[in-house]
Design a protein around this nucleic acid. Structure first.
Lengths: 154, 154
DNA sequence: TATGAATAGTGCGTATACGCACGACATTTC
DNA sequence: GAAATGTCGTGCGTATACGCACTATTCATA
């Protein structure tokens, strides 16, 4: 197997998922990434923006831009943090919770199709392998230049 | 396993890959997606813009914006298509070919790390599973609303 | 061959994605 | 308790990502 296949396969799979999700959620007036943000908040309310970004995962700058829009549409609120004057405590509004339930239903066909294209064992394995790869990339600081093999083979 | 884990794991893995790649390629003056475009062109020269978009995969509008930038930096050229007056034949310039080789080397640590975090069997399986999921999402037109299970269980 | 349908590319608008610099507040250290 | 250091959020700039409307060209067919 060629080395470059794995990154490209990962990219291709994500892109299709993203496109299909976008089409599914558009009717409900939110984007795929806004759904991810709402889902993350639904799991853990009153996060600050950095923690929210870490969990999505996304960038704090990006999350801020998203929150501005979501706040404007009334799905999310940002209160001043009780103990940390720098931070803001983000949480779903009641409307946000309702919208999230609606979105979860709307996304079900996509989740179902992904899972049903695989055996239960394959689905489980795929999640495990994706996490393994993600963890590996997350942990290691990559060399800035050149070729790591030139070193390890020397 | 929860249903939502697979999409989130896929998203998380792609995001890390994208971020790490961005950091690696930035020194060389191109983005990760520009690298993908150049790699796609390196495999099949003189594609028109739609075919290029189909292979990346990406959106024709996005590809156009990228080509404008890449053309400006001299890595890519767009000639009028020999037989189709609507289309443009996109190809790498000599500078584009050189840059691509350089980028391929720069990306090697990332590809290496992804592959080496898995056994050869796992890596092979992962690529297969990703393609299976991607193909499944690509082929089926999803229902516009509601829950596909409400139908299949009825 | 005229004409309608399909296709390639363009241009625009909105929403991520992320780096970077900045001010505000916290925490540490002396 | 004041200064150094770190962290949170903001604001800005550039580059995707994609839908949509529009023009130009090609293809199908009457």
């Amino acid at each position: 197997m060629t080395r470059g296949e794995l990154p490209m396969a990962l990219r291709a799979a994500y892109m299709v998922l993203h496109r299909k999700s976008e089409a599914q959620f558009a009717r409900l007036g939110v984007t795929t990434d806004q759904f991810v943000l709402l889902a993350t908040l639904a799991r853990g309310q009153a996060l600050n923006q950095r923690e929210l970004a870490r969990r999505m995962p996304s960038d704090p700058s990006t999350v801020r831009a998203m929150l501005v829009l979501l706040e404007r549409s009334g799905l999310v609120q940002r209160d001043t943090h009780p103990t940390d004057g720098r931070a803001r405590a983000v949480s779903l509004t009641p409307a946000g919770k309702r919208k999230f339930k609606q979105l979860w239903k709307a996304g079900d066909p996509i989740r179902a199709q992904m899972v049903e294209s695989l055996t239960p064992g394959e689905a489980h394995a795929l999640v495990g392998l994706l996490r393994k790869v993600a963890d590996s990339l997350n942990s290691q600081s990559l060399p800035r230049g050149g070729n790591v093999h030139a070193l390890s083979k020397g």
